[in-house]
Simulated scan of single mutants.
Amino acid sequence: MIRIGMLHHRKHPDSVIKAYAYAAVAMAEGTEMIYFSPGGINLKTKTISGFEYKDGEWVEGTFPFPHVIYNTGSPEKLAKSNDVIQELKKNIPFTTHSIGNKMSVYRRLKEAGEFTQYLIPSEVVRGTNHFFSFLDAYRKIVFKPVNGRKGQSIILIERVGNDFRLLINTDDRLYSYDELKEFVSTHIGEEDFLVQPYINCRTKDGSVFDFRLHVQKNGEGKWVITSIYPRIGAPGTIVSNINSGGSMNYLVPFLKQEYGDDYFNIKGYLEKFSLLLARHMDKLQKDRYSETIDELGIDVALDDLGKIWIYEVNWRPGCPPTFYLEMDVVKNTIQYCIYLAKKNSRIKK
């Protein structure tokens, strides 16, 4: 029987809500799933101490190495055990690998060239002079952390006469040149920030929005669309992320409302783009690192001219907290795990 390992930084699966869903689907697919953390790995005996879901509860035990590993959890926390995880990777296929932060992805796509036209010009702020030079060039920009998550700390900045307007969450205020210089200097002294020109992507009623394109590999190792949905920002904000007060909608009703008869063509445009970019990112990962990826959350804007712009590409996106898509995500993951295990020479097809 194929044994799937679910690697997470937390020691017990009771603290990971989605663990049960993966165990249940694995069982339904005729496989077993073992939940474990880095501390349970024994390289000498080639065993793991972890948990298996049996008879309605998690049962602790020691198991042979899994045939494939679904690596989830916090990359930063798992990095503390990088040495043992790297040893594990030498013999066991992992479902995915990190593609890096915003600027890493930006540079990789820019160097490859194929998707350059969809990239928003982005630069890591090297100092206040560099910041003001970028602001002078674009007049209205976004200032955000390179390693930011969930739409946090994204700031809109634009010149208004001799002053500068800053929109931070719903706080809208004017800064003088000296105040803004001090503000930027303080922030870039604490962590890396990047700047981008602002892309106007708003609904008819003026709310900001973007699209999340969620794609995964299926049981045949092929990229498929799990979901595409719009995320609409809370009133008075420039952030559409759900964790920052935004909301979601179903794709087709939203497109019909905003684009009328063009909805079908735009839907097809988003679908085609999501699969093309996923395959491209997968190829870049293989060519550069000999690694694979199995899932991406691609955030894009659609400007006034109907052109796609890439905001961000996430290699371990969160599942939409609605639309009943949780099980679709889990099913694709488990079936892809089975595909990888069978592909590995230790398992006969």
Rank of each mutant, 00 (worst) to 15 (best):
L213T: 06
A341P: 02
T186W: 03
G148F: 00
N344Q: 09
N129S: 14
R165T: 08
K150E: 14
P13C: 03
D163F: 01
G260C: 04
G56H: 01
M327T: 14
K256H: 05
P197Y: 05
L156A: 06
I232A: 10
R346C: 10
H9C: 11
C201L: 02
A28P: 04
D304A: 13
D192H: 03
P38G: 05
V313N: 01
G236V: 05
F323P: 07
A301V: 10
I154V: 15
G318H: 10
G148M: 02
D83M: 12
R316Q: 13
M1F: 05
R316F: 07
G40F: 00
Y118A: 08
F132S: 11
V252C: 06
V329D: 06
K217W: 05
M248H: 09
E87D: 11
A112T: 06
D192R: 06
S133C: 09
I308M: 03
E60R: 10
K144S: 00
L78E: 10
P197H: 07
D171C: 08
Q285V: 09
M327N: 14
V195T: 08
L135P: 04
L88T: 10
W223Q: 01
T333A: 13
R149N: 08
L88N: 00
S207A: 15
L7D: 08
Y138P: 01
L305N: 09
I34N: 00
V142T: 12
G40R: 00
A26P: 00
I41C: 05
I48W: 00
D192Q: 10
K46C: 09
D172C: 12
H67Q: 07
A79G: 14
N243V: 08
L296Q: 01
N82A: 15
N344L: 07
S207C: 13
Q285W: 04
A26I: 09
I157S: 02
P317D: 09
G206A: 10
K181C: 05
E326R: 11
D83H: 12
S240V: 07
L119C: 11
R3V: 08
H280F: 11
K283N: 13
D83Y: 12
T31C: 13
L270K: 00
E271F: 08
H280P: 05
S290E: 12
D328Q: 12
I242W: 02
A278C: 06
R107N: 14
D304G: 07
I293N: 03
S104G: 12
K89Q: 12
G268P: 00
Y118N: 10
G56A: 00
V195E: 03
K204C: 14
E220Q: 12
L135H: 06
N101F: 01
D210K: 05
Y138I: 15
F264I: 15
E295M: 10
Y138E: 11
M27D: 15
H97N: 11
L43W: 10
P93N: 10
